[in-house]
Design a protein around this nucleic acid. Structure first.
Lengths: 272, 272
DNA sequence: CGAGAAATAGAATATTTGTTCCAAAGCCGC
DNA sequence: GCGGCTTTGGAACAAATATTCTATTTCTCG
């Protein structure tokens, strides 16, 4: 291994050098590189042993890694990070305020708002989950042959992630995405179930597919925003998500958390 | 001096106790208290000797100070600050694994875990965001004619939501979704930019489109998990998201928050 | 001013942490 | 399969760092 004799003098240089060598790195050193890149903010406050444990390598691997980057050893690398150590505030709310102070409309202020919206949504979900409805939704979907997932516009990311998780968990699922304006309503077969996702303003196509399923006697699970949603009337089990909007856009954090829990629970139930 | 036997459990408690004792302190200890109160953010990355030098007292004075505050010694005090800086999610993945192996997870328990994962991810994002990279990403995309959004598999929900938000904000955008195995690479025109989203295991198609764009001189913005991601080398601006990742079950909360902030910031910048 | 108590500095020690080195294992081209 | 090269893991070692101890100084109060 050809060593570089001079140590990086700044964090930027450090990153550049890391990017430069990472490709030619053997397995263990690659693990070090990945873990350190992912936790570069912890270098300043960690010991070799802690970092090594995090990367799942022996301490000596971390040492070799430091040397390959041009440092004489770990201490020298750590010194770089300790000096640059920005007071990344221990307190979440202070940090958030700092972000928002970047000026109204600045990217980081926006980010602060979206983070806040997501967090509030998750908290509300934690408090207000309807356990009976969730259990029923799991039961319905676990009993189905094929799960038909439908969700358009702002609900589409949720629907597509549900389809992804179902696929990974080997649950037969079909994503109705409205491509080509085809609704594929004849794909709904006896024994199947529909999982419909929609938020105000409720998309016509989603409601229509749910109504169709219901008419044919297929069970429908709804994931929506309010109990007064038109989807609620069509569904055998209704899950509502108290999502906080920021501006015109919905954070989706809570919705996705609920969707994932649902999908994984259904996947586990079908295995058993 | 009346010692307190239990150590502060949080930084707030630490501050309270410090405020409580600082008045009745003799000279050298008072110096310690002043210096430490003024530089509490450096406790995590300093040695006893450094702190002592800063306060202009001998190291043993610092030791006594720590003990008066209720710590067994300096190390214990330092641990408080190190952990407060890098909180919470040490063995998160083992927790999820236990949950999966053990109880097979009631739906509510699963939901609780996903909520917690989302919350931690958002918190980590608030602390670890690279504001310079975010600003650069906004600049690049705001200057583009058309934004080409690409992201597949687990990144697809993010990509599709980005496309949705761009659409609402009247930013010309095209979602490359890989339908029909078409990569639409010839849709990339001079003046356009690519916004690529991918997480390990990095999807070949996404990387390939990004590489193609770069080769033609189009700017690329990457949204990925690690700075060592192959996408990082292809991109002019790299945004990394510290998302809790376990198998197929990625919370996406932080990713979406960052994506939305990016999209809205780009939309606003283009209006002005 | 002087006795006693408290506080202090610095040296001595214990402990933790970083670093080196070498034998064993893995890999590659032959 | 075999020799040479690279990589790896762990134990031995070295350095840095925290902690304790005690002689000395500094306060305090009679």
């Amino acid at each position: 291994m050809d060593e570089i004799s001079t140590a990086p003098a700044s964090i930027e240089e450090f990153r550049a050098r890391l990017a430069g060598v990472i490709d030619g790195l053997p397995r263990r050193l690659r693990q070090c590189a990945d873990h350190i890149a992912a936790n570069s903010d912890r270098i300043a406050v960690s010991t070799v042993a802690e970092l090594a444990a995090g990367a799942d390598v022996p301490p000596s691997a971390v040492m070799r890694f430091c040397q390959i980057l041009g440092f004489s050893g770990f201490s020298e690398m750590q010194r770089l990070f300790r000096e640059a150590y920005a007071p990344g505030w221990p307190d979440y709310s202070t940090r958030l305020r700092n972000l928002k102070d970047g000026g109204a409309g600045s990217p980081q202020a926006l980010l602060g708002e979206f983070i806040e919206a997501g967090r509030l949504s998750l908290e509300a979900l934690a408090k207000g989950v309807d356990e009976a409805a969730l259990a029923q939704a799991v039961a319905v979907l676990a009993a189905a042959e094929t799960v038909h997932v439908v969700g358009l516009r702002r609900a589409y990311p949720v629907a597509s992630y549900l389809a992804y998780v179902f696929d990974k968990m080997e649950v037969p699922a079909m994503l109705h995405d409205g491509v080509g304006k085809l609704d594929h309503r004849f794909a709904l077969r006896p024994g199947d179930a529909v999982l419909a996702v929609t938020f105000a303003p409720y998309s016509e196509e989603t409601l229509s597919l749910a109504a169709d399923a219901r008419q044919r006697g297929l069970p429908v699970v709804g994931l929506t925003d309010l109990l007064t949603s038109p989807l609620a009337r069509l569904a055998d089990a209704v899950l509502t998500v108290p999502e906080v909007d920021f501006g015109a856009f919905r954070s989706l954090s809570a919705t996705l958390a609920l969707a994932m829990a649902l999908a994984v629970a259904v996947g586990s139930a079908r295995e058993g």
